[in-house]
Amino acid sequence: TYYTVKSGDTLNKIAAQYGVSVANLRSWNGISGDLIFVGQKLIVKKG
């Protein structure tokens, strides 16, 4: 599943929405910090 980042989104918010961990979101998307951008597509695997 792909999720497109919207204004106001955070990794924590997206992780909670999908029932996954922030660590997994980072791993699946090659993100090291907490910086995400509006319009960015993130890979999300269902929890």
Results as ranks from 00 to 15, higher is better:
10 T>Q: 06
24 N>D: 11
27 S>Y: 14
17 Q>I: 14
12 N>E: 10
10 T>P: 01
14 I>F: 02
18 Y>V: 10
21 S>F: 05
13 K>Q: 13
3 Y>M: 06
44 V>D: 01
37 F>T: 12
38 V>A: 11
1 T>F: 14
22 V>Q: 07
36 I>S: 03
26 R>A: 11
19 G>V: 06
11 L>T: 03
4 T>C: 06
22 V>F: 04
42 L>N: 00
11 L>E: 01
20 V>D: 03
46 K>V: 12
45 K>F: 12
41 K>S: 14
23 A>W: 10
33 G>W: 06
40 Q>T: 07
41 K>Y: 12
19 G>P: 02
7 S>D: 11
33 G>E: 09
46 K>F: 14
43 I>V: 09
2 Y>S: 10
3 Y>V: 07
39 G>E: 04
41 K>I: 08
27 S>Q: 14
40 Q>W: 06
13 K>T: 15
7 S>F: 08
47 G>W: 13
45 K>H: 14
23 A>V: 08
16 A>I: 14
29 N>P: 00
25 L>M: 07
40 Q>P: 01
36 I>D: 02
19 G>N: 09
12 N>I: 10
46 K>R: 12
12 N>T: 11
41 K>C: 06
10 T>H: 06
15 A>S: 07
28 W>Q: 04
32 S>F: 12
21 S>H: 07
40 Q>V: 05
45 K>S: 15
38 V>T: 12
18 Y>L: 09
38 V>K: 08
40 Q>M: 09
6 K>G: 10
8 G>I: 03
6 K>N: 13
2 Y>K: 07
37 F>E: 08
35 L>V: 10
4 T>L: 06
7 S>M: 10
37 F>K: 08
41 K>H: 14
44 V>K: 02
39 G>D: 07
23 A>D: 13
40 Q>K: 05
39 G>F: 04
11 L>V: 08
34 D>S: 12
30 G>M: 13
10 T>D: 12
14 I>S: 00
20 V>A: 09
13 K>N: 14
42 L>W: 01
8 G>H: 07
31 I>D: 03
47 G>H: 13
47 G>S: 11
34 D>W: 09
19 G>F: 08
29 N>G: 01
38 V>C: 05
43 I>N: 06
46 K>I: 15
47 G>D: 15
18 Y>K: 05
46 K>E: 14
40 Q>H: 05
38 V>W: 06
22 V>I: 13
41 K>R: 12
34 D>H: 11
27 S>C: 05
7 S>E: 15
4 T>K: 07
23 A>G: 11
27 S>T: 12
37 F>H: 12
44 V>A: 04
22 V>A: 10
34 D>K: 07
1 T>R: 08
34 D>A: 07
19 G>I: 06
1 T>M: 11
3 Y>R: 03
23 A>K: 11
41 K>A: 10
36 I>V: 08
24 N>G: 08
15 A>W: 01
10 T>G: 03
32 S>H: 12
32 S>N: 12
45 K>L: 09
32 S>I: 15
24 N>K: 12
45 K>N: 12
2 Y>N: 07
29 N>C: 01
36 I>P: 04
32 S>W: 10
8 G>S: 06
41 K>G: 08
20 V>H: 03
9 D>M: 03
35 L>N: 09
10 T>R: 05
20 V>R: 02
39 G>Q: 04
37 F>G: 07
25 L>P: 00
12 N>W: 11
17 Q>E: 12
2 Y>A: 06
34 D>Q: 08
24 N>E: 14
1 T>Q: 12
15 A>H: 02
15 A>Y: 01
25 L>K: 00
14 I>P: 00
44 V>M: 08
5 V>S: 03
3 Y>I: 09
45 K>D: 10
16 A>R: 10
43 I>C: 05
13 K>C: 04
21 S>K: 07
21 S>E: 13
20 V>I: 12
10 T>Y: 04
19 G>S: 09
7 S>I: 13
1 T>P: 08
41 K>F: 10
11 L>R: 00
40 Q>C: 04
